[in-house]
Amino acid sequence: MTGPSDYIAGVSSDARKAPRRVVFVTRRTSAHVRSVDEEQVQTWPEALFRAALIVEMLVIALVLISLFFNAPLEGIANPTVTPNPAKAPWYFLGLQEMLHYFPPVVAGVMIPTLLVVALVVIPYFNINIRPDGVFLKHRRRNLTVFYVVAVSLSLFLWFFDVYVALVPTLVAAAFMLIAAYSGPQSPGRFRRYLVSRPVSWWIMTWFLLELVVLTMVGTFFRGPGWSWVLPWRS
């Protein structure tokens, strides 16, 4: 067995706040920090009071909105007259915009299914967990993949006249190009920030951009017969 000189003993002594910890480090291994202990507070009342406070503020805001703005109510449902335009709730208008371009089996079934599957599998692929900038490691390979994906996706959207989705794609691709041709030593904080972004960040940001643009277009810029209108001219 090991003698007393074979290890160092240490005691963490804030027994008032945390249970007493005793640590034994043998001479043969070197201790290294895996995690740092942080100051902790009691959930009751610290966290619960803050939660209650923020929820109260939310309730006040929603009550004020409800006092001043009435929920929409149109005429009674009439199967013989379709309002023009007939719009889904706002969070589905991105999908409705896609339905304008693609057959229902693509825009209504395949795209939502793919989205949900993509969201679910995010944490199960190591490529989504690594924090390296996308063009910092395996630069040549990643750049090739980027060009192939960006060009084919853009051509696909262009072929089907989906300019609404093409524009955000091109914007995202332009920023990726900036990232590709900058380095960690580039001037400008924003460029260095872009360089350090991993591939999962880029895909999610592209998705967020598409979501916002498509929802905005569907909500504000689509009128009778799903044609373009300006929201301030009604």
Binding site: P79, T80, V81, T82, P83, N84, P85, A86, Q96, L99, H100, P104, G108, P224, G225, W226, S227
Partner: peptide
């Protein structure tokens, strides 16, 4: 046949048009 909206006859275009997705 797209998503079940009621179409309308547009005499000026000589076409039947769907208000939902054009």
């Amino acid at each position: 046949t797209h998503l079940g909206c009621m179409t309308a006859w547009k005499p000026e275009l000589n076409l039947i048009a769907c208000p939902c997705h054009g």
